[in-house]
């Protein structure tokens, strides 16, 4: 089994890469900038799970704004590795929103569910089934969406 890399180890790797390495050359950071980048990355590692935003981390640092931009980019890259999340809404969200209150069929990787669209998020749809139960559908694993009125031929 492959070893699991912790967030702290990942940050260490990035910090080592930042030192005289390629990132330094790409962003043109001096030694002061490198220390500041390391400080914010350390703070980021300590903030994991607290919900503290990148903006608040940067806001509490004494950094000047161009460096903030660079650190923000690096942190966003790390966050992308740690916790990849789709940023755009699912294409199904628009279809579902247009069918709020209507009965629909949704085909997922675990089968088909049917119900009235009660709520729509960027990557989920809440259906109310005929039996009264609620189904929260993950649009990431949805393959088809169909308005469906069994009373109409």
């Amino acid at each position: 089994m492959a070893n699991q890399v912790t967030l702290e180890e990942l940050v260490d790797l990035i910090q080592n890469a930042v030192r005289p390495g390629p990132i330094t050359r790409i962003f043109g950071l001096g030694s002061t900038g490198i220390n500041e980048v390391s400080e914010v990355l350390r703070r980021f590692a300590n903030s994991n799970g607290t919900g503290e935003s990148v903006e608040s981390l940067l806001g509490s640092s004494p950094l000047n704004s161009p460096l903030n931009g660079i650190i923000g980019i690096i942190i966003n890259i790390i966050e992308g590795f740690i916790n990849p999340r789709p940023t755009l809404p699912s294409p199904f969200a628009r279809l579902a929103r247009a069918n709020l209150g209507n009965n629909v069929l949704m085909t997922t990787t675990a089968g088909t569910v049917e119900g009235v669209v009660a709520e729509v998020g960027s990557w989920y749809v809440v259906l109310t089934e005929a039996a009264g139960s609620t189904v929260i559908v993950n649009l990431e694993n949805t393959t088809a969406f169909q308005p469906y009125n069994p009373g109409v031929a």
Partner: peptide
């Protein structure tokens, strides 16, 4: 895995 969950049904 959240990413492998198709849906959650509550009763």
């Amino acid at each position: 895995l959240t990413s492998s969950t198709a849906f959650v049904r509550t009763t």
